[in-house]
Design a protein around this nucleic acid. Structure first.
Lengths: 97, 97
DNA sequence: CTGTCACATCATCTTCAGCTGATATCAGCA
DNA sequence: TGCTGATATCAGCTGAAGATGATGTGACAG
């Protein structure tokens, strides 16, 4: 979860992920949709790919990136579980030394 | 979601949140549990409080912090929805210009 | 095999966030 | 009132990460 949070913490990466949620796209799409410089996009894509949140598929001259929805689901489940734990222990008391 | 992600992106803040998920705690607890300096903890707590992820309750000399589990649940739901969107459009095709 | 296009990588700069020591504030108690 | 302990705030340093221009690489067209 912390890993995914770290990835989505950057606003540019969050936007990239949202674009990819609407379907696979290549770098040129991201550059155009998000109005960013190409090296900037490539750098962020590199981070996301290295972390496993997206995967690259070579299609000729282009590289299409796919979002790993399983990883997102796992992170969501962990967040949800954390919330459940907090709800359970909301009234717990703890002494100060 | 991006807000919560930004908060949990820092490993120290993620640990603080996990401690608070086990029940309310004051700064002295966090300092001891996480083996951190007090100003460091206060700074992170300040960020979390300002974002609304935790709330402070004054109890005499101490300040107990409570985790906002609703905010966590909301973030989890948004993540889950993003994953669902990605699953739906996983096979979408998009042309390059 | 040469040019072009999509993308990756590099070097550099700049900005920002976290850590820390010092200090301020504020509540409770003698 | 004066002291002590818990927490907040401040100033300064340092390291990490993002943005950008220049350049490398690899595939396709001609």
């Amino acid at each position: 979860m912390t890993v995914v949070a770290g990835l989505l913490a950057d606003p540019v990466r969050a936007r990239i992920v949202r674009v990819l949620a609407r379907g696979p796209a290549c770098v040129c799409h991201l550059v155009e949709d998000l109005d960013l410089k190409q090296p900037n996009v490539s750098n962020h894509v590199r981070v996301l790919r290295h972390a496993g949140l997206i995967t690259g598929e070579n299609r000729g001259k282009f590289t299409f990136y796919h979002l790993n929805h399983v990883m997102l689901d796992t992170a969501a489940a962990q967040l949800s579980e954390l919330a459940a734990t907090a709800r359970e222990h909301a009234e717990a008391r703890r002494d100060c030394a």
